[in-house]
Design a protein around this nucleic acid. Structure first.
Lengths: 349, 349
DNA sequence: TTGTATGCGTTATCAA
DNA sequence: TTGATAACGCATACAA
């Protein structure tokens, strides 16, 4: 059935060909490949010349068999935000560009009760060196434990430290949200609404905490009517916007726990003839493409997702990266508040 | 260096264990695994029982070595639209869910002159069964030829047939664009502007052709001033919007070759106080998240990207899919026009 | 510092 | 229809 898959032309050179040409044993060639330290500069040079000459590329499948480990990194995610996943992918790929590693992508279904079994099967079959866990599944401790048990390295991505520094890359979301809200307060806003993220998400909790901290600092409080539920989806933003903007005394500013919901709130404002930012300031979170595509452009919090991908890969497999590659230190990266046109002082009313 | 990677607990059972338990040779076990037809029902049953009992899972690395082929599908893309890539990924993964295949993702840089070399190295190293090519790199014939030469199957995704039916899945963009424009004309629009896609992209050419066909049918023409250049980016939409809406006699409707540029045009309309859709109808293409996040919601063309992923995978590796899996026929899938709030009859002026 | 023999888990060959 | 034995390409243990 599965036939006709043979590349024409000469076969790829193997380690044996290199050994023969260089006049050494295959083990010596192997040592060169794996950067062993016990080698004469002369032999190393000879082997490298032979490799160059033959255009030899070590066969990853054979190495994987011998190593009992595939030269792969797995990216596990269940993220509704495509741009986030893809930016992170890019970061990882940038980091492993000059290594022998490749990236395996695996979406998982966090809602399924078979999730852990699925991941287990996947990891046992593919035997990657390590796994990168994106939020929200990165918050699942069982998943991290599973990796540990299977001998698969892991690094979790979070909006706050979820694990020790060798197993987690995080951003300082809480602080930056507080900073954004302080900006609203500095502009004169006193009635500030909040649209929450989904229940049980660490990221949502962090954003809410940061929001409340900033309010508390200023001696402001959050009336229950100003505190709208949400789930990171556009429709939740619509509902929150309807609720908040229908109040007798509506907020003059609304912080939304992500951009998508902020877009929903902004739609409602437009529909109701509420001018943004003159009558209503809006802030989101993510700096997704949506943030700049809507009008007026959304002030938001940008988390360094690409850089987190780079950092996560470097943390996961420092020993597989090119020797010269500079590996950055630090497990916490800084998010930044990006101010655009959706924020202004409250109008006198 | 790279050590400590040994999973605790007993080792995985191998084909030898299964053979011993079933009282047959390992080759016979291999035959069962690979669904050979020359087997007694009795032996097969015995082997399957042993497999079940041991929880044996064939080692993909060893198979890859022996087969000289990895059980992987590579997804090659250089697509600015994250949602598209991810939806396609999902489709592919849905299709291969119950198979032994996994998905390798590889972004490439179509701008680089080393692109072909990069892909060659990648394919030679990873030796996937096949590769899926997303637009715009799917339009590169050299890339397809490279796969062919390396014995790597390939399927190209395009907005029009780029290859024979075994090597291409496409949508009928041209027809659907024409349909969308006919809708504008039916509503009474006569001055319809166009924002082009990037030069050299087949998708852009298809959309333009469809647009012009619909205009021609109605006896309308496209004045040069109504024909704005673009590159699928938001900023191009801004520039096009500035140009078109500054005309003494501006268009009453604008078709944009993708949603992102449509969002740009819409921003300009808002800035200039041009009401959408009352004074200006706008149509985009892609049905990206942006289409529903902007206000008013954008009428657009949805291409069946998830389904294309499923179909592409089925076309690429029909022989690796579960025997029971139903494989759909047909290499051309239908895009659909989605009408939302950004379209209305032209106001009398 | 380098080489020899052996193993990794599977499939292919060819004979039985 | 099955089985013994040799690949597959590389790494490891142990010798030299």
């Amino acid at each position: 059935m599965a036939a006709q898959n043979k590349g024409p032309g000469g076969k790829q050179p193997t380690i044996n060909d290199v050994a023969a040409l260089a006049g050494v044993s295959k083990k010596t060639v192997s040592r060169v490949i794996n950067r062993s330290e016990f080698l004469t500069d002369k032999t190393r040079a000879a082997v490298e010349r032979a490799i160059e000459q033959l255009g030899f590329v070590p066969n990853p499948q054979a190495r994987a068999l011998a190593f009992r480990r595939n030269f792969l990194i797995a990216l596990l995610h269940d993220n509704p935000n495509a741009q986030t996943v893809l930016n992170f992918q890019r970061g990882v790929l940038d980091a492993i560009k000059d290594s022998d590693l490749a990236l395996l992508v695996r979406p998982v279904d966090r809602g399924s009760d078979k999730m852990l079994d699925d991941v287990r099967t996947f990891l046992e079959k593919q035997r990657p060196i390590g796994a990168l866990l994106l939020p929200p599944i990165s918050e699942n401790d069982d998943l991290a434990a599973l990796c540990e048990n299977l001998g698969v390295r892991y690094v979790r991505i979070g909006s706050a430290p979820l694990d020790d520094a060798k197993h987690c890359i995080s951003s300082n979301d809480r602080e930056v949200v507080a900073e954004a809200v302080r900006r609203l307060i500095a502009l004169g806003h006193r009635r500030i609404g909040f649209v929450r993220g989904p229940v049980g998400f660490r990221s949502a909790a962090e954003r809410e905490t940061g929001f409340l901290e900033a309010l508390a600092e200023a001696g402001l409080d959050l009336p229950p009517a100003f505190n709208a539920p949400g789930n990171y989806r556009y429709t939740a933003g619509i509902e929150a916007g309807e609720a908040l903007l229908s109040l007798a005394t509506p907020p003059t500013a609304i912080f939304c726990s992500n951009d998508e919901m902020a877009a929903g709130v902004m739609s409602v404002a437009h529909s109701k003839g509420v001018k943004v930012p003159e009558q209503l300031s809006i802030i989101g979170f993510d700096d997704s493409p949506t943030a700049t595509h809507i009008w007026p452009a959304l002030s938001t919090v940008r988390w360094p997702i690409h850089e987190m991908g780079v950092r996560a890969a470097q943390t996961l497999v420092p020993d597989f990266l090119a020797p010269g590659a500079k590996v950055a230190e630090g497990a916490v990266l800084a998010s930044t508040f990006v101010e655009r046109q959706s924020v202004a002082p409250p109008s006198a009313n």
